Each structure stands twice: as structure tokens, then as C-alpha cells.
Deep mutational scan, measured.
Amino acid sequence: GKMTGIVKWFNADKGFGFITPDDGSKDVFVHFSAIQNDGYKSSDEGQKVSFTIESGAKGPAAGNVTSL
């Protein structure tokens, strides 16, 4: 299901970062391709987002990331 969290950091040059879930669980990796914004796929530190957890090649990753 959908979770909410805060972007801990995001490196636009490398195209990835981490989200800290609101439920206190482990930080989740986020790749720019998962960000659902139109246009520039980046996110700012401290941005509140909703997301799903997908199982990626390197473990859990955020999917369907949407700014709230």
C-alpha cells in the first residue's frame, strides 16, 4: 500500500536519494525514475512524499513517488 515519508536527501546529479518513512521503518532508496512529477524528476530534502515499496535488484526501493 501507499506510505508517506520525508525525502532525507536527493542527489539530482546521480539521480537517487533516500526517503525516511513516517512509520519509523528503515530509510528507503529512491531512484529518479520512480518520481511521478511531470518534467524534471528530482526531489528536495524535506519534501513530504507518498510512495509504494517495490522490490528492486538491490533490495527495497520506493515506487510511485508523489509530492504531497
Rank of each mutant, 00 (worst) to 15 (best):
25 S>F: 04
65 V>I: 06
66 T>A: 08
49 V>P: 02
10 F>T: 01
11 N>Y: 04
32 F>D: 06
50 S>A: 10
19 I>T: 00
34 A>T: 07
15 G>W: 03
10 F>H: 01
1 G>Y: 08
35 I>R: 00
39 G>C: 14
26 K>A: 14
6 I>S: 08
17 G>R: 00
5 G>V: 05
41 K>A: 11
61 A>S: 12
42 S>M: 13
28 V>F: 04
55 S>M: 15
25 S>V: 03
51 F>G: 02
40 Y>S: 09
29 F>A: 00
33 S>P: 06
27 D>C: 08
63 G>C: 14
47 Q>L: 11
50 S>D: 04
62 A>N: 02
11 N>V: 02
52 T>A: 04
15 G>P: 00
24 G>R: 03
29 F>Y: 09
4 T>N: 05
58 K>T: 08
18 F>M: 07
31 H>G: 04
39 G>I: 11
43 S>K: 10
9 W>E: 03
28 V>E: 01
64 N>D: 07
67 S>F: 15
34 A>K: 08
28 V>I: 12
18 F>I: 05
13 D>Q: 13
19 I>E: 00
38 D>V: 11
23 D>H: 06
22 D>G: 04
40 Y>R: 10
30 V>A: 01
5 G>D: 01
12 A>N: 10
22 D>A: 06
20 T>E: 06
51 F>D: 02
59 G>T: 03
68 L>F: 08
22 D>K: 02
65 V>Y: 00
64 N>I: 06
22 D>Q: 03
16 F>W: 14
20 T>W: 05
42 S>T: 14
17 G>H: 00
20 T>Q: 10
68 L>P: 04
64 N>R: 07
66 T>I: 13
9 W>Q: 02
59 G>E: 02
57 A>Q: 11
15 G>C: 09
4 T>F: 08
40 Y>V: 11
34 A>C: 08
62 A>T: 01
21 P>G: 01
48 K>R: 14
37 N>A: 13
18 F>V: 06
41 K>V: 12
46 G>P: 09
42 S>L: 14
41 K>E: 09
26 K>P: 14
14 K>W: 12
24 G>L: 04
5 G>S: 00
16 F>H: 02
39 G>T: 09
23 D>W: 05
11 N>G: 04
53 I>Q: 03
57 A>L: 13
26 K>Y: 07
12 A>I: 12
48 K>V: 08
56 G>K: 07
17 G>M: 06
24 G>I: 01
58 K>Y: 14
56 G>N: 10
65 V>S: 03
62 A>E: 01
8 K>Q: 03
53 I>L: 10
41 K>S: 12
15 G>D: 01
